[in-house]
Amino acid sequence: MLLIRCPYCETERPEVEFVYAGEAHVARPVDPAALTDDEWKNFLFIRSNARGTHFERWRHMHGCGRFFNAVRDTVSDQFAMTYKAGMPRPTENEIKEARS
């Protein structure tokens, strides 16, 4: 079982309390009507599908109920760090530091 650190509860909790919520930092276009079909398709369906470092959303469903973001390695399944929703994507250095 994975242990995931919730940045709101500030504690590590078992995976069963969480639900996965897709890739993080995918901003919804402010004016969808102005987009071409291709741009709208890209927003809806096209994801980075990273092999390695992946930025993703999780929700502490059976805990505090908050959505937050995580950096996980999709190969090793290891979480480098988690951070509150609304915070910017961590830099490579910050991730490296969190991993060490």
Partner: peptide, 15 residues
């Protein structure tokens, strides 16, 4: 979850 990390006088939602 790890009960050692749960001090007396606290509560939590869990499974």
């Amino acid at each position: 979850f790890d009960f050692d990390t749960m001090p007396s006088g606290t509560g939590t939602r869990t499974i």
